[in-house]
Computed example of a mutant assay.
Amino acid sequence: MGAMTSTDEARQALETQQTVEITTTGRRSGEPRRIETWRYRAAGRYWLTGSPGARDWYANMLADPRFTLHLKNQDLAVRGRPVTDPDERARVFAEIVPTLDWAESLESWLAGSPLMEILFD
């Protein structure tokens, strides 16, 4: 896969692709774990989340925040930042959840959904 020459190019690529794949490191096995998921945009930044419930990818990133973000033409070494602050979670989810016609209530997302910011190092 091609290497990115700048964070701006990486962000531009991420902007055009909502469905992404990520590879985390298994918190118990130490093995790579690759899944398909959606990236979200809110507050001018990029996020990983999902409907309320436990997620292996989130638990893996809590143990090791480094992961690979796979886009169509490149693989990016990035880092996840877990968002646990209630005010920040409220701001981000208030922007994401109303755009999802299948989403449960905002309150259910605030109470039970993982939220990880994608950071470009």
Results as ranks from 00 to 15, higher is better:
Arg34Cys: 08
Arg34Lys: 10
Ser113Phe: 04
Thr5Ala: 15
Met61Tyr: 00
Thr99Gly: 07
Val92Asp: 02
Thr24Asn: 01
Gly50Glu: 04
Asp8Glu: 15
Met1Leu: 09
Arg91Trp: 12
Glu107Tyr: 06
Glu88His: 07
Ala42Phe: 04
Arg39His: 03
Trp38Val: 03
Gln74Thr: 11
Arg28Trp: 01
Ala59Cys: 04
Val97Leu: 05
Phe67Lys: 00
Glu9Ile: 12
Ala3Thr: 14
Trp38Lys: 05
Ala94Val: 12
Pro32Gln: 02
Ala43Val: 13
Thr84Met: 11
Ser51Lys: 11
Arg39Leu: 07
Leu100Gln: 09
Ile118Gly: 06
Arg41Ile: 13
Ala54Gln: 12
Ala43Ser: 11
Gln17Cys: 13
Arg81Lys: 05
Gly112Met: 06
Asp56Leu: 12
Arg45Cys: 07
Ile35Leu: 09
Val97Asp: 02
Met4Pro: 11
Ala10Tyr: 11
Val83Phe: 07
Ala3Phe: 15
Thr7Arg: 14
Ser113Arg: 11
Pro32Phe: 00
Thr19Tyr: 04
Ala90His: 08
Gln74Asn: 08
Phe67Glu: 00
Gln18Pro: 06
Gln17Pro: 11
Trp109Ala: 06
Phe67Arg: 00
Glu104Gly: 12
Gly112Lys: 07
Ser113Ala: 14
Thr25Cys: 00
Asp8Arg: 13
Ala13Asp: 12
Asp56Phe: 03
Arg27Cys: 01
Arg33Met: 03
Thr84Trp: 06
Pro98Val: 08
Gly26Arg: 00
Arg91Pro: 13
Gly50Gln: 06
Asn60Leu: 00
Met116Ile: 15
Arg33Ala: 01
Ala13Arg: 14
Ser108Arg: 13
Glu36Asp: 03
Arg91Asp: 14
Pro86Asp: 09
Val20Glu: 00
Gln18Tyr: 05
Thr16Tyr: 07
Ser113Cys: 07
Arg33Asp: 04
Ala90Leu: 07
Trp102Gln: 06
Ala94Gly: 15
Trp109Leu: 03
Tyr58Val: 04
Asp101Thr: 10
Ala3Arg: 14
Ile118Leu: 13
Met4Cys: 14
Thr99Ser: 09
Leu69Gly: 03
Lys72Val: 10
Leu14Gln: 10
Val97Arg: 02
Pro82Trp: 04
Arg91Leu: 10
Arg91Cys: 09
Phe93His: 00
Arg81Ile: 03
Ser51Asp: 07
Leu119Asp: 10
Trp47Val: 06
Asn73Pro: 11
Arg91Phe: 07
Thr68His: 01
Asp8Tyr: 10
Gly44Gln: 15
Lys72Glu: 14
Asp121Ser: 14
Glu107Gly: 05
Gly30Thr: 10
Thr49Asp: 05
Leu100Met: 12
Gln17Lys: 07
Pro52Phe: 08
Glu15Asn: 15
Ile35Met: 05
Trp102Gly: 03
Trp47Gln: 08
Thr68Lys: 01
Trp38Gln: 09
Trp47Pro: 06
Thr7Lys: 15
Arg91Gly: 12
Gly2Pro: 14
